[in-house]
């Protein structure tokens, strides 16, 4: 175990931080799972952070001038460069601390937020560069599995079979034809100290992982599953239910990769069938039994692969 994490006891429902670094009055849709993930992540990090946002839902809904939901210093530059901007912030803090222009012992966590498009697609290069260079920062991908802000277009993180406005099902298509890009594995391949997956349904797990990500020295990556009622065609009230089901069906397993070693943080021994998860969302409505079987097989195989990774190291 990393020594930076040795003293961290973890949050509990009884000792949650009172601070809300992210203020209400934001314009997120009703039942938005992404803004909840963002809120919980910031709650775990506290007020001593500098936050960088990529363009996307969270940036738009949090900052329509003259209003901001950010109670911590925040900067948004563009879509594809959250990790690069965060690199600059981190380097500046380092230089200013060394030169005595920023209090040396004052801990400031640098955190970058981006959606799945801003992470898996257009921002992947900047992310890879920042992880490889070893900046001490946290990168949080809030994954709602498509370009929601622009009207639900497919991304590299859109799951197989999902209907989006650029992966519509038709006579020659079942919808999204590709399997979800495994960004946590890409992040882990950089040999960074900490990678994790999380979902707001397991809020303590999410908060603990984000806090650990901040505590480790060097880059950390947290991939947070973020239900989107608008883009998925689900009920707003079902966002947490979906986030739980995604884990219970093994579609979105919860794990950590600490110094390259995989740990499954929530073992799912009796998985629910994927159908239970799929049927709550309009984006999967067109799938046939055969498609669902195919998805089930893939999910089973991926989970097996993950188990092997967690065991053999």
């Amino acid at each position: 175990m990393l020594k930076e994490l040795a003293k961290f006891k973890g949050f509990s429902a009884k000792n949650l931080p009172k601070e809300e670094p992210f203020a209400p009055g934001h314009r997120a849709c009703q039942g938005c799972g992404e803004v909840l993930a963002l809120r919980l992540a910031l709650k775990a990090l506290g007020m001593n952070v500098i936050a960088v946002s990529a363009t996307g839902c969270m940036e738009i809904i949090s900052s329509p001038f003259p209003y901001t939901s950010w109670r911590v210093p925040w900067i948004h530059i563009a879509f594809e460069n959250a990790a690069a901007v965060a690199s600059g912030v981190e380097a500046a803090l380092k230089a200013l601390k060394r030169k005595g222009r920023f209090p040396k012992n004052r801990r400031v966590d640098v955190v970058a937020f981006a959606g799945d498009g801003g992470t898996a697609d257009i921002g992947l290069q900047a992310l890879s560069g920042a992880l490889e260079r070893g900046h001490d920062f946290v990168y949080i991908c809030l994954d709602n599995e498509a370009y929601m802000n622009t009207g639900v277009q497919r991304s590299g993180c859109t799951p197989y079979g999902a209907m989006t406005t650029t992966s519509p099902p038709g006579e020659k298509s079942i919808g999204q034809m590709t399997w979800k890009k495994n960004v946590p594995a890409i992040a882990a391949a950089h040999g960074i100290p900490y990678v994790a997956t999380a979902t707001p349904a397991f809020f303590l797990d999410l908060m603990n992982k984000v806090k650990k990500a901040a505590l480790v020295n060097g880059p950390a990556y947290v991939h947070i599953y973020s239900p989107c009622p608008t883009g998925w065609g689900s009920k707003g009230e079902d966002s947490i239910r979906l986030a739980r089901l995604a884990v219970e069906t093994r579609i979105f397993p919860l794990y950590e990769v600490i110094e390259g070693k995989y740990y499954i943080t929530r073992k799912v021994t009796k998985p629910k069938p994927v159908e239970e998860y799929l049927k709550l969302q309009r984006r999967f409505r067109h799938l046939t039994e055969e498609h669902i079987r195919e998805i089930q097989q893939r999910v089973d195989a991926e989970y097996e692969r993950l188990l092997r990774l967690a065991e053999c190291l």
Partner: peptide, 28 residues
């Protein structure tokens, strides 16, 4: 327009943290 160009804050920054609390989303 929300304000005169002469009143636009430097760089269009928002200097009051968390002032979205003034925006009442309850009427949604």
């Amino acid at each position: 327009a929300l304000m005169s160009w002469k009143e636009v804050p430097f760089g269009c920054y928002i200097l009051e943290p968390g002032n979205s609390v003034k925006f009442k989303t309850g009427d949604w």
